[in-house]
């Protein structure tokens, strides 16, 4: 017997999570749209970011979400460095080489986490925001509300940056035609580096928000990577709006699948829906004909 109230509360929970997933996936989407590189280590940056948030939270006894103030700028710089050291050398290389390099990067990050923290999950024992808020018969987690609100604000901010600022124009022009962009006076190398840094910074933000209630183990990256790929593939050419819409869909499917089938089937449900979508709209939800 399925209670309507359970369905509704799952949908709301899924929407909240969907916003967080959109935030993480947006980084992957920007990087892929600009450089044609699929960063297979994307989720592993979320995982490292989550450990970092956990360490800082434990040391300073603050809620993990607050540590974003430190981890986001730090990850931006790390992103610049990773771009220079790992990504720039493989731009325009054979896809197989690009895959090998970014998958390898993901494994390195996982192994670092395994070596330092071992496999047992970590979570912040005294999260300030992990309490319920009752809205009528539905209970929402405050931490998830905060995460969703911050994610939405960040998505809107990046949408504004892309559509209304000069640097956003440079990003969109370079995404549209990277051969011609330098002819406008655009320093394409700089655009690439900054966008990669931004994409990695967003993983740190997502990770810090998530650690307000979640737990991290060295394999956390895999699920964030998978969700991000599905969201980007579904979002197609839709930009921030596309990522947001498909992130919400994925979040809701995951929540419903986890409750009404079994928690371990959550990814299977997401993938089933993804395959169905590809069947009917092979170029994503928002592709123009």
């Amino acid at each position: 017997m399925i209670e309507p109230i359970v369905v509704v509360s799952n949908i709301i929970d899924g929407l909240l999570m969907g916003l967080l997933y959109s935030l993480v996936a947006l980084g992957l989407s920007l990087i892929f749209g600009l450089m044609d590189i699929i960063n297979f280590a994307h989720g592993d940056f979320v995982m490292i970011g989550a450990y970092l948030a956990w360490i800082l939270a434990m040391n300073f006894m603050v809620d993990p979400s607050v540590t974003a103030l430190i981890t986001v700028p730090l990850f931006f710089v790390i992103g610049l460095a990773v771009y220079k050291a790992v990504i720039e050398p493989i731009l325009g290389a054979e896809p197989l080489i690009q895959i090998a390099v970014t998958v390898g990067l993901g494994f390195v990050l996982q192994n670092i986490a395994l070596a330092i923290f071992h496999a047992e999950p970590r979570s912040y024992p005294a999260p300030a925001l992990n309490f319920g808020i009752n809205v009528g018969p539905i209970t929402l987690t405050a931490a998830k509300l905060v995460a969703a609100a911050v994610s939405l604000a960040s998505l809107l901010l990046i949408h504004y940056m892309l559509t209304r600022t000069k640097f956003g124009l440079a990003i969109r022009a370079t995404s549209a035609n990277r051969m011609v962009a330098p002819l406008m006076g655009i320093n394409v190398g700089k655009v690439y580096a900054v966008v990669f840094g931004l994409g990695i910074a967003l993983t740190a933000l997502g990770a810090a928000l998530y650690m307000s209630w979640g737990q991290v183990n060295p394999y956390l990256g895999a699920s964030f990577s998978l969700l991000s790929w599905v969201i980007v593939a579904m979002g197609g050419l839709g930009g921030v709006v596309g990522v947001l819409a498909s992130g919400l869909i994925v979040g809701v499917l995951e929540a419903l699948g986890s409750t009404f089938i079994t928690p371990s089937a959550r990814m299977a449900v997401v993938y089933l829906a993804f395959f169905l979508l590809l069947w009917f709209r092979p170029r994503g939800l928002f592709a123009r004909r």
Partner: peptide, 22 residues
């Protein structure tokens, strides 16, 4: 450039703005 190389997803105005990037 050969083949024009306009930024097809951008508007005409945005293409011109991009031209004045420096």
């Amino acid at each position: 450039p050969e083949g024009r190389g306009i930024f097809t997803p951008l508007t005409v105005y945005e293409n011109l703005l991009a031209g004045a990037y420096t």
